[in-house]
Design a protein around this nucleic acid. Structure first.
Lengths: 125, 125, 125, 125
DNA sequence: GTGGTCTAGACCACG
DNA sequence: GTGGTCTAGACCACC
């Protein structure tokens, strides 16, 4: 379920795009599964259907959904966006790390964060 | 020198804020050095003085500049924003790394990026 | 309703900020209630919409209002600013009392004022 | 000695007025003592003589200084401003206390501040 | 209709 | 000359 934050400066449709994208990328929404209809989703969120429509359109353009006219919107198969998404995120991370270095953050601090994020991978595997 | 991107959706004043903040944070603009006057800068960028004014006001509020009315705008001394800035950047990096992990990026890839960014700090030199 | 004083040296937008802040802090404007639109308010006060906008922006930054773009401006829930506001007012009062003491005002006079301000809290009624 | 804060939003001359007024009100500057000449003072503070002149003029208008043409500026005799000053400060304190009450500060907290400000009057006298 | 941004041009206080 | 404020009028994105 999605919770909107009306105090967020970003437009509503963008919040929806981000959250759905996240759910898809994380695998919470399976490939080829059907999305709620525009009207249903709009009612659930108590917003204008136009806004949902716009979010779906954006997600389709970004390659996360595909539309079957008269049937509904479906989650795109994973392979189609996975590699592109990963490379773009890697690029963002590189930029952020570089920026951190520029302002004087030391490698050991960043290493600490990296280790911490992946800490639960240590023992079990 | 700053180059504006009118195709960017973000407002002009925000672009100026970001770029000047970057220059200040990187040390390209020295502490207590004088910024171009509102009018001068506006002419250089071919924009309205009000827009520059707004950017300066934002930077002042964020603690990167201080204003002496009737005199000009000056770069704030480094210590005043350094610690806050670093902690906020660390937080951003943590979020990005976590996101990367969530979408399936492996630790060794991120480790690779980290090492690469800090490559010139290695043992050889 | 707000009355502007054009003879006051302080900028118009600041007068608006102060008065609205007062109304919000006193509870005259309820949490989450909608403020007049920028244009409407500007017409009521016979000033330029930009000036109202600036006041609203200031109030948002100070945490008294939140803005939903395309919807309007709303009064922030009380808890979000209450504690900070109280501590800042206490600080101001302390300063003023200290100044009073420095210029030779005696404690009993200040005590008298304090009792008078809170007179209706006494035992008799 | 006076220290100017160029980062302060208030104009320089106003800072000087405030600080000198404070020194006079506290008794640090004796009645009928001579103030530094405009030029001397300006040099000490490394500012424009016009600014000092303006501060002196303001202080004269407020009744803290008097000017003897061709001789210099002198501190006004205490009785002339004392009562007015005290009553105005009392008024300010009343307003602040009332405001504190309005936003929900309790009497005991304000009483605590008052006692604390005058704490060193307890034992010795 | 709403807020957000920008321009053009003006006036003021400060130093 | 400098920053600060204000007006008038315009365009845009969002809902």
């Amino acid at each position: 379920m999605i919770i909107l934050d009306y105090r967020d400066k970003r437009p509503i449709y963008e919040q929806i795009v981000d959250k759905l994208e996240h759910l898809i990328v994380c695998g919470a929404l399976e490939s080829n599964s059907k999305m709620p209809s525009v009207r249903t989703f709009a009612m659930e969120l108590s917003i204008n259907p136009n806004t949902v429509q716009r979010a779906y359109a954006q997600l389709e353009q970004d390659g996360y959904l595909y539309t079957v006219a008269g049937r509904g919107n479906y989650v795109t198969c994973e392979q189609e966006w996975k590699s592109g998404k990963i490379s773009s995120v890697l690029k963002e991370i590189t930029a952020k790390l570089q920026y951190g270095k520029e302002i004087g953050i030391e490698k050991k601090d960043l290493q600490g964060i990296l280790d911490q994020v992946f800490q639960d991978e240590g023992g079990s595997v």
